[in-house]
């Protein structure tokens, strides 16, 4: 455990150094990068990926994966519009129900994975198609628009000068960090990922923990969906397509082992910021979008290679 912990810290140190280097390099490339306005705005743009990445860290720490988050985001967005406009519910109720629907989507993932022992990759690959299909089928390609002004506070507004969703992300970062780092539940999560059979024998409610985590994954994807609708002021059934790849990249970049058992929320946050800084900073320095994709791919591989080489002795 201590060896693990040390190697983890090592990855995060590498990442933090990398992040500082990248931020410094980008700041010299464009004087508009390191401004409060730009950084806050980037915070707004990364909030949805960030929210989902927090719970994805838990998922991957248990040795699982959730590919369906982008589709759940799309489905909640569509349901929000349908509940509000077609079923005539008050908007706050529609918002809550849509998020709960996201949670149910996650619960279904969890049930398939725990009850039927289907590997998470396959279970969520199937629901990735299923939930996206439901979003397309229910919406029949219709968009729902024209929300009341107050709704846009969530996605487009500020509270005390900081984008609303950044407050939500910040609060959840703390909650997730505390749960994973300091509670029994967090320890159970690590134990499940490190050695599932062992965890079962030592009396940890592995299935219950997984069920909770996948449900939470659905809930935050739902929350991200509502924020997304508020940010772009319309619903479309293709919302959130490919989100899972961004989320997984951020989490893995943050040092969470895809085999489970290792990873921290701080790492994920660092990975997230690094990715967003690269996207934004490279664009501001005149690199085109396709070039940025290449750089992110390279950074992902190199960061993990570096961390593996430096921490090999720690791994044992």
């Amino acid at each position: 455990m201590t060896a693990n912990f040390r190697s983890l810290l090592r990855h995060e140190t590498i990442l933090a150094v990398l992040l500082v280097l990248v931020l410094g390099a980008l700041a010299t490339q464009s004087d508009r990068f390191f401004t409060t306005a730009n950084l806050l705005n980037q915070g707004r743009l990364m909030a949805e990926v960030g929210l989902v990445a927090l719970v994805m860290t838990f998922v991957i720490v248990t040795g699982g994966i959730d590919l369906s988050v982008g589709s759940i985001l799309g489905l909640t967005a569509i349901l929000l519009g349908v509940f509000w406009q077609n079923l005539g519910m008050p908007l706050p109720v529609a918002m809550v129900l849509a998020i709960i629907a996201g949670g149910i989507g996650g619960l279904v993932n969890g049930l398939i994975i725990t009850r039927f022992k289907v590997p998470p990759l396959i279970a969520t690959l199937a629901t990735l198609a299923l939930y996206r299909g439901l979003a397309e089928g229910i919406s029949q390609a219709r968009s729902v628009r024209g929300y009341p002004e107050w709704f846009y506070v969530l996605g487009q507004g500020d509270v005390w000068g900081v984008p609303t969703q950044l407050w939500i992300l910040g609060a959840l970062v703390i909650v997730a960090g505390v749960i994973l780092g300091l509670t029994t539940f967090g320890r159970a999560t690590y134990a499940t990922g490190a050695n599932e059979t062992g965890a079962r024998f030592s009396g940890i409610g592995v299935d219950r923990a997984k069920l909770l985590i996948y449900t939470a994954s659905g809930l935050v994807a739902g929350l991200a969906g509502v924020i997304f609708v508020s940010r772009v002021s319309t619903t479309r059934s293709d919302m959130g397509t490919g989100l899972e790849l961004d989320v997984i990249t951020a989490v893995v970049l943050g040092g969470t082992s895809i085999f489970g058992g290792r990873g921290t929320i701080i790492g994920t946050v660092l990975g997230l910021i690094l990715m967003q800084a690269l996207k934004n900073g490279l664009a501001l320095s005149g690199v085109k979008g396709d070039g940025t994709i290449v750089v992110i791919g390279l950074v992902l591989i190199l960061a993990i290679v570096a961390s593996n080489i430096f921490s090999r002795d720690g791994e044992g």
Binding site: S30, R32, A37, N38, N41, L45, S143, R145, F228, V232, S233, T234, R236, D238, M239, G240, T241, G242, K279, N280, A283, L284, G289
Partner: peptide, 30 residues
Amino acid sequence: NIDQQISFIDNYITSGVDGILFAANDPVAI
């Protein structure tokens, strides 16, 4: 993809262009 298109435009606003030409993926979202 609407989300990515929005991010691109947002970045160019920050970088300080004088004019933007666009072909919208979604009339409302953009």
